[in-house]
Amino acid sequence: MSNIVIITDTSCDLPEDVLKDLPIIRLKMPVSLKDNPDQDISDLNIKDFYEKMRKGEIMPVTSQVPVNVFMNCFEDIRKEGKKGIVLGLSSKLTGSYQSALLAKETVKAEHVNVIDTKCASLGTGLVVLKAAKMAQEGRDFDEISREIEFYAHHMEHIFTVDDLEFLKRGGRISGAQAFIGGLLNIKPILHMVDGAIFPLEKVRGKKNVVKRMVEIAAERGKNLENQFIGISHGDNEELALELADAMKKEFNIKEIIISWIGPVIGAHSGPGTVALFFQNA
């Protein structure tokens, strides 16, 4: 049994059945209501979560994993004689990375390595999954840390949203970009650059979104047929499955994980989002 555990948070959007039996610790990233910060809604049924967002009944906000939660986690694995690799949400999108660094310094956790994945949602999840499997294979701490940082920093995030207003509210894009995206049935395609969200291009109509996302995968991906591909969605399973079928048909993909976008990411991306994750190197 490996003495290495992978520490992540609930923004990774890995399905429960995938997490099972893997050396992964998933810390809770708080999700609450803007008008009631003390009301934790992170465990709200995910379909209800998106339905309430659509109806304007809730305006969720997120916060970072607290420093003391990281400290307790680091101390717990130290007592168990284990080492930990922290792989969480991009530092450009949350303060959790800084919280983990502060916790490491506070408890002098030399047995812990904190890596800025520069990823989000199932992009982080695929990184966590690969690291956990490497640990299971008996790979050593330094080797996993080195390889997984390269893997994380070559993870493509290509996604589309139904309403750019949610990203605007969270400060992820400007108001002008949100306004333009809502005109004339234009569907925005966005991507991550160095851990931050940027508009990539605009496509007219939903039908062309899947086609263009597959084309971008062809332009940027490397050996896609041998990769573990990720697709996540915010209550838009129909489009997610359509994208999965198109990827399989175009690239003979063998393994695809399809997951819901959880409340942490969904609070900012909103209902209807569909995202594609793959390696570019």
Rank of each mutant, 00 (worst) to 15 (best):
I7D: 05
S11R: 02
S11T: 09
D13E: 08
D17I: 01
V18D: 06
L19P: 00
D21I: 05
L27D: 01
K28G: 00
V31R: 00
L33A: 11
D40G: 04
S42M: 02
S42V: 09
N45D: 15
I46G: 01
K52Q: 15
M53Y: 04
R54I: 05
M59Y: 15
P60L: 04
P66W: 05
D76G: 08
K79S: 13
G81Q: 07
K82W: 11
I85D: 11
I85V: 12
G88I: 14
S99G: 04
L102S: 12
A103E: 05
T106Q: 10
E110F: 00
N113F: 03
N113L: 11
C119D: 10
S121N: 04
G123S: 10
G125H: 06
V127P: 01
M134I: 06
R139W: 14
D140F: 09
D142L: 08
D142T: 13
I148G: 04
F150I: 13
F150K: 09
A152N: 02
A152W: 04
H154M: 00
H154F: 08
E156Y: 06
E156A: 14
H157N: 03
I158Y: 13
I158K: 10
D162E: 15
G171I: 07
G171V: 09
S174E: 08
G175Y: 08
Q177K: 08
F179R: 13
G182T: 09
L183M: 14
L184R: 12
N185C: 01
K187Q: 12
K187P: 06
I189A: 06
L190A: 11
L190T: 06
L190E: 05
H191K: 15
V193I: 15
P199V: 11
L200R: 14
R204L: 10
K207F: 01
K211A: 11
K211E: 14
K211C: 08
V214Y: 09
A217I: 03
R220Y: 10
G221S: 03
K222D: 07
E225K: 12
N226D: 15
Q227A: 03
H233C: 11
E237N: 04
E238H: 00
E242H: 01
K248D: 04
K249F: 00
F251I: 01
I253M: 04
I256L: 03
W260F: 03
I265K: 04
G266W: 07
V274P: 10
V274K: 12
L276G: 02
Q279R: 14
